[in-house]
Design a protein around this nucleic acid. Structure first.
Lengths: 213, 213
DNA sequence: CTCCTTGACAAACGTTTGTTTAATTTTTAT
DNA sequence: ATAAAAATTAAACAAACGTTTGTCAAGGAG
């Protein structure tokens, strides 16, 4: 059908699957549809990926591989923690912007309990939390306080991801132009939102500690 | 199979479908599975709902019907806007807690572009934004500033909903007991997070306005 | 040349999909 | 009591599902 760019059939299947899964969801897409979109014979899917879920598995692995790079060296101690958080948020927004479909597939199918990927997910997420614990400490929160980490972290991530996830719906509600300026302002806005929010939580924590002494 | 509580077959189908859709997603659940779970003949689904998507449609309508009640009288001018926001957040958390599966189905299938429900969603969301615009104004933001509304609102909602949505994954990462105390602390925490965040955005806005004068 | 692996294909596999049909029971109204 | 309406059933429908089969062409190694 579309005959996606690369001549490597495996890459073409992957690209087609990412696009279709992002649009309709994993379960709603058939292997025939993927094969047609990739301009490839159906049998090639089982040949290269050992079945349909094999594609999803590779997609999620690729997602985490790229996603982890965003957190690389994010806790730069030569900068203020506020600047680090702002930089991190910009990086995440840009990452999702440049890998929208890949991110949407991975994020949408996260809750899906395919035993073949269930283990992968928890491991990767735990890993990710570890990476930002240093920055969390410098922001005035206790990195040992799993509760706050479990609230603020997913809140930030879900905020950004959902902004892309609900794009089709939001386009009918808000008349924005989603250009460079939009994403710049968007990143700045949620950075302000969360920086002030985290500061508020840190202050509350200090207040509690003092009062229990 | 399970023969859900009610004797009304339509209600039993609805209950079974909500449970199954919440677990596996709309596309991954077959009508036979729903019928079996509801203890009902397959043909009853087309008879009562005119097909599988008819069930989803009724589910989403029921969700919005209940969800709107949460925003009823939320902008109580006898209370401070901060107290209103805190109350609203508590109400939303409690609502999702008491309607978890219904909410998860509606939220998960939101991006899905079934033309039969596409119109419904945008309308309902626009309606919802209208309802909180008064409160937004009292919090120091400009309700005409669609951008901030479009950022803060969905951020708060996605934060809460995602907390429930990723529960299966998070259970493998964080060892919490999700009891009354957890939800109480959770609501208080994100209330603090967003109240300070919104205050930060409001201050920034004031600063900008002053500087452009 | 022969041998063997790899890549690609059409075709068919047995299941399962959502929906419909026609017959039958149950309920309601007259 | 009888007729009409509503509820429920088993069975069948074509279509689509994910996977596998057997075959054939191409290419490198010995």
């Amino acid at each position: 059908m579309k005959e996606r760019g690369s001549s490597d059939p495996k890459k073409r299947i992957l690209a087609a699957a990412i696009s279709l899964f992002a649009q309709k969801g994993f379960a709603a897409v058939g292997v025939r549809e993927i094969a047609a979109e990739a301009g490839v014979n159906i049998a090639m899917i089982s040949y290269y990926f050992e079945g349909k879920v094999g594609i999803l598995k590779e997609i999620m692995e690729e997602f985490f591989r790229r996603y982890f790079l965003v957190f690389e060296g994010v806790d730069d101690e030569s900068k203020t923690p506020e600047a680090c958080v702002r930089g991190l948020i910009h990086n995440i927004v840009n990452f999702v912007r440049e890998n929208t479909e890949l991110t949407m597939v991975s994020y949408n199918e996260l809750p899906l309990d395919l035993p073949e990927i269930a283990e992968l997910k928890a491991e990767k997420i735990a890993d990710m939390i570890q990476r930002i614990s240093g920055l969390v400490l410098r922001m005035g929160l206790d990195p040992k306080d799993a509760f706050l980490i479990a609230v603020v972290g997913p809140s930030l991530i879900s905020t950004i991801f959902t902004n892309f996830r609900l794009r089709p719906v939001m386009k009918h509600v808000f008349p924005f132009k989603f250009d460079d300026a939009y994403y710049e302002r968007y990143a700045e806005t949620i950075a302000t939102l969360f920086l002030h929010g985290i500061k508020g939580l840190a202050e509350e924590r200090k207040g509690k500690k003092r009062s229990t002494k």
